[in-house]
Nucleic acid binder design. Sequence first.
DNA 1: GCCGCCAATGTAAAGGCTTACATAGGAGCG
DNA 2: CGCTCCTATGTAAGCCTTTACATTGGCGGC
Lengths: 345, 345
Amino acid sequence: MRAHRNRPTIYTVARHAGVSIATVSRALSGGSRVREETERRVVESSLKVGYRPNGAARALQRLRHGSIGVVFPNLSRPYYAGVLMGVEEAANRLGLSVLIAGTQGRPGPEQLVLDLTSKVDGLVVFGRTVPDEMIAELRRQGTPTVLLARPRVDGEDTVRSENREAARALAAHLLEHGHKSIGFIGDTHSSPDCAERWSGFLAAHQEAGLAGPAWPELSALLEAEGYQVALRLLGADNRPTALFCANDDIATGAYAAARELKLRLPGDVAITGWDDVPTARYFSPPLTTVRQPLAELGARAAELLQARVEGDESEPVNALLPTEIVFRASCGCRSRRRPRGGASS
Amino acid sequence: MRAHRNRPTIYTVARHAGVSIATVSRALSGGSRVREETERRVVESSLKVGYRPNGAARALQRLRHGSIGVVFPNLSRPYYAGVLMGVEEAANRLGLSVLIAGTQGRPGPEQLVLDLTSKVDGLVVFGRTVPDEMIAELRRQGTPTVLLARPRVDGEDTVRSENREAARALAAHLLEHGHKSIGFIGDTHSSPDCAERWSGFLAAHQEAGLAGPAWPELSALLEAEGYQVALRLLGADNRPTALFCANDDIATGAYAAARELKLRLPGDVAITGWDDVPTARYFSPPLTTVRQPLAELGARAAELLQARVEGDESEPVNALLPTEIVFRASCGCRSRRRPRGGASS
DNA sequence: GCCGCCAATGTAAAGGCTTACATAGGAGCG
DNA sequence: CGCTCCTATGTAAGCCTTTACATTGGCGGC
């Protein structure tokens, strides 16, 4: 029941090559102070015996795990998967490994996150997956943390994409198309990003001198809920003529609801999404949506974290990455071109 | 430039609580042979100083990392993301952490995988992400490995979902709908799963006494390529009346191509997919597709791997998980119900 | 009242690696 | 020819845990 086959260690290689373990270590990683012929012999031996350095021993000695952790709710939305890929790609480039922890369907994220801190040098934490107190606790323990897609927290690094201005511009665009009654579907409670979009959405109404809806239509960020909510909204007597969906999944549900009610898109209802999922351009009509720099969000987070791990003590960073409105046909635009005003943010 | 704030160690706690490090260790993990009052004091101290055990030291001592690695191409397809979530969930349940490695866009997977083996007890490897020689090398090094969605390799554990029989049944179903000319779109070269679907697709034709197409229409498993290929196929003089797409992304592209050519679905062309992505039921018409047990695939792989890590030396396992055809309207069925024959596999 | 035993705790070794410091041996120079 | 210095290599300490083994002190039994 112990290690199921004793893996070769640095001693195995040393014996095989007839040198000391220090020389093996130097030949394989140091790259310094080893005679060329010795190095060759050591490399040969290490291959022959199938040696792989033990990461735990290395981490212990170096006082660094060489790994970072990422905490997210789930991967079923392309958004999280995309950002995670960005983290992974950047981490790999920096020579770091990535440990993952999904919080969805777990009793509480606290234990999960605490356990992670035993194995990583730092943490990337998505949105509201862990409570503020936990963030503070991490700081107290000395685990560097970068917050993703979450409003500023005192003294913590944050990476987000621009939401408010893009939402304002997109809502303004719908208003320019002549829509007077636009519904907003999304979960402003549990998604900070979503709350910002709502805020921009309202701002556009104010600028146009319109009241706009009093509340967002709450819906989980999923197709099924979007469908239900859209069905209710579009089935009402004073139905909105446009639907501003907080992400493309909700928009997907809204499309289905509109079709079920025999409403034409975008003639009877205009619909917009958010995220620009790969399939968005294949919607019928193609979906007007907002593209976030997913990979870059992840990469920035990883790079920032790495700097903190290396001891960078400078002021907390609050990175805001630009988003881009992708005008397609579902908002009422004819072509897939960008319309008149420089409404992209 | 060293560790940016010296984290408390077990010595810090011991000093704070006025006991030896052995007692701290026992109080925090052993749970044995410690006076109740002592345990309380130790726990209090550990909280007060913000102690977290060092995973590297623990792993070194225990001769086990307590982590497994997952190697996949990317996460942009929901398929990989879903299986990864399954791995993560099961690993968490088993007290393991998950390290990820995406191979897409990397020079070669070899170095990536080798580096991983320094930090994990075992590896879950997707499809053709790493070459056979590498698999053999892993075995030689003593890193237990489970292969996912990949045909049997001598002496290795494999977890797959059923492809051939489901594909046969689905193709037979299309033939029963009266289709004589069905196109198959997918990448049989680089995806083993896809090759099996092609094989089942052919089998259905044989059983029906039909020749069927001579080759699969090669296409990457992405919307864009599916769109291009479908456009070519459906634009030809002797266009097929049905399209058997190797996954839902390709089907998405095919829908767009059919709409562009003003073909009605499913009247002029029937289309089927594979994977049952969350949006499939919201397609217009709703997509007939095949559901794979994503989470379970991942969970089985993780559990199997864990057993091997624990020293299980029994015969290699070759798990085949059942799939389920989800009949919706795009194949020509009226309702979303399952049609006559027990065609699900 | 002494011995033995047990519960609670302490001491120290081991796990695999990196690296500061020690050593050896050869080259270059006077 | 001997001394110095430098290069290649070796020796050993230390990174933080867990745990086998040692120690201590109190209690029951004789």
